[in-house]
């Protein structure tokens, strides 16, 4: 069974169809890239899966359980981790505290008034930071980190809730080109090692074709192609609606 199964997903804004009848699935340990021109419906799709938007119709299931109608908070609780296009971390806290808080929240102990934060899930936090290569910077304040490192912290925070699905919205946006491959390699390694399904959007085609197992392409709210990077690359329709215009056949 797929980890994430999306079926017939549709959404319209004031009569304009943003997403219509999109279906796809992501398996455990698989990296699926969602690409397409601006306004193709990628963000709308993403926001329906993460709970910020309610779909007009269609189903979204995580390991057989529906996510439709749940708040982002509950969706996290059901096993979905996220990274944001512009990193969202707790700037006033240290790297370690960011991860500790996510672990506490996963254990539903984030409301405790009487325990001490210092000792909570210390080993687990260090293990996660080790995995993303941020163990040495555990004591640094998040607001002072380099952007690339912030992305790694975000990854560790997302992994702290032991997700079965990881949603990454433009994971390499805002990063220097040289750092991008490294971050994706890290994410891919973790996903495959922990059997996490990964769905990501991305504009950098080197990232998409270098790291995705499969690619889906949206245009005008519809799914127009799906397949391996090589297949999608060769697809005439993709070439016509996405970059490069009608050049392949001109």
């Amino acid at each position: 069974m797929s980890v994430l199964a999306v079926n017939g997903l549709s959404k319209a804004f004031g009569g304009v169809r943003a997403v219509s009848g999109v279906s796809f699935a992501v398996d455990a340990g698989e990296l699926l890239a969602m690409i397409g021109p601006n306004g193709a419906g990628k963000s709308t799709c993403f926001n329906m899966i993460n709970g910020q938007l309610a779909p007009d119709s269609g189903s979204i299931e995580l390991e057989g359980k529906s996510l439709v109608g749940k708040a982002p908070r509950e969706i996290c609780r059901s096993g979905v981790g996220r990274t944001f296009q512009v990193t969202a971390t707790f700037g006033s806290m240290t790297v370690r505290e960011n991860v500790q808080l996510a672990l506490l929240s996963h254990a539903r102990a984030q409301g405790s008034l009487f325990s001490s934060m210092e000792e909570s899930f210390l080993d687990e936090a260090h293990k996660l930071l080790q995995q993303v290569g941020m163990r040495e910077q555990a004591d640094r304040q998040c607001a002072l980190l380099a952007y690339g490192d912030l992305k790694r912290v975000e990854l560790a925070v997302a992994l702290a809730s032991r997700p079965r699905l990881l949603l990454m919205d433009e994971p390499t946006a805002g990063m220097a080109p040289a750092e991008r491959g490294a971050l994706m390699q890290l994410a891919a390694g973790l996903a495959r090692g922990e059997k996490i399904a990964v769905l990501f959007t991305e504009h950098d085609m080197d990232v998409v074709f270098g790291h995705a197992d499969r690619v889906i392409v949206l245009a005008d709210g519809e799914l127009i192609a799906e397949g391996s990077p090589t297949e999608v690359r060769a697809n005439a329709q993709v070439r016509s609606v996405y970059l490069g215009g009608e050049y392949g056949d001109a």
């Binding site: 512009v86 990193t87 952007y147 946006a173 805002g174 990063m175 220097a176």
Partner: peptide, 10 residues
Amino acid sequence: AGYGRARILF
């Protein structure tokens, strides 16, 4: 240039 500390233009 960029947004916050995310750099977009190099």
